[in-house]
Structure formats: structure tokens, C-alpha cells
Design a protein around this nucleic acid. Sequence first.
DNA 1: ACCCCGATCGTA
DNA 2: ACGATCGGGGTT
Length: 169
Amino acid sequence: MSNTILPRSFYERDTLCVAKDLLGKVLKFADYSGVINEVEAYIGQADSACHAVRGYTTRTAVMFGAAGFSYVYLIYGIHHCLNIVTEREGFPAAVLIRGIDLYRPVHLSLDGPGKLCKKLNITKKNNQMNLTQCHDFCIYDSSIQLEYIATSRIGIRVSTDKLWRFKII
DNA sequence: ACCCCGATCGTA
DNA sequence: ACGATCGGGGTT
């Protein structure tokens, strides 16, 4: 398993490429490590499902910022969701981490962005953190190459023609 | 100051 | 397939 932290240049690319490439990579947060197995892409103001569709606001500011930063928000008043900002500065986009196979400190399949954040104790306090410079919160490179499927995004009632959810099979 | 609704989850 | 749930983003 690689110990190389994915650099800014990894995230500062086309969001669909970043999303697919994140499959099989290792999410590290505090004492937790797990292999990413499901993600979704949210891309720019032309994507009506993207939070930034209505432009620059307090909440979406981080999506307009530098790639490789976390975007954590509360959904349904209950669940937190973890995203990683992508693309160049000024272009709002991110990849939602929907599932990981946790292998440290315990083996556990975490399917669903809310469950994932709850188990790892990721909340808004972890919003806007730089994932490219610290071993406490980052994503490690990996040579794992796996097949995946592309589907429409979960819980989204618009743009269902966009197959921007990617899941390892 | 307040209204509205959602990038979910668990149960059926 | 569907309803519970409620914090906070966006607008007044």
C-alpha cells in the first residue's frame, strides 16, 4: 500500500476523471483507513444537482476554491457528507465520497455518505481542510485497479441522464 | 428572523 | 417504495 498523499495536481483535473480515479484509493482520517468504493461527481453551475448551481454563497465558497480541500455539509438536518473539491480555482466542483471499505482499525463496509461520516466522526468541523499536506486527513495513492459501473446519482431528481455515480463492482 | 426542503437512512 | 427528521442555507 502506497504512503504517497495524493497531491493537489491529482484533484485539479476534470472531475469525472478524478471521481473514477478515486475508486480504490485509501481515505485516511485520524485513526481510520478505508478503500474508497463509491463516489459521485458534482460539476459546476451547469449541473443543476450541484450545490453551487446558484453561484457563490457562504456554503459553496469552498467549492470555488483550491482543489484538494474538503467540503463537508449537513444534509436532512441529520447526516454529514464528505466531498473533495476538484478542478481549477473559480470552477465549483467536487466528488462526494459515498462508500468505503474500512480496514483499520476494524473491518467494516460503510455504504452511504451519512453512515461513513458518522462512523469516522467527520462533521462540519472538518470542512475546508487541506487533504494534500497532512497524514491526519488525506487520500493515499494506490495501484489498485478495479472495474466499476456508472449510474445516475442517488437521491437526485434532476439531471438523471448524467451517469456520474461510480461504484466498484 | 424565518421558511423550506434536502447529494439520507432505515424499515416495509 | 416511502416517510421521519431538523439544521441551516438563502432570502426577507
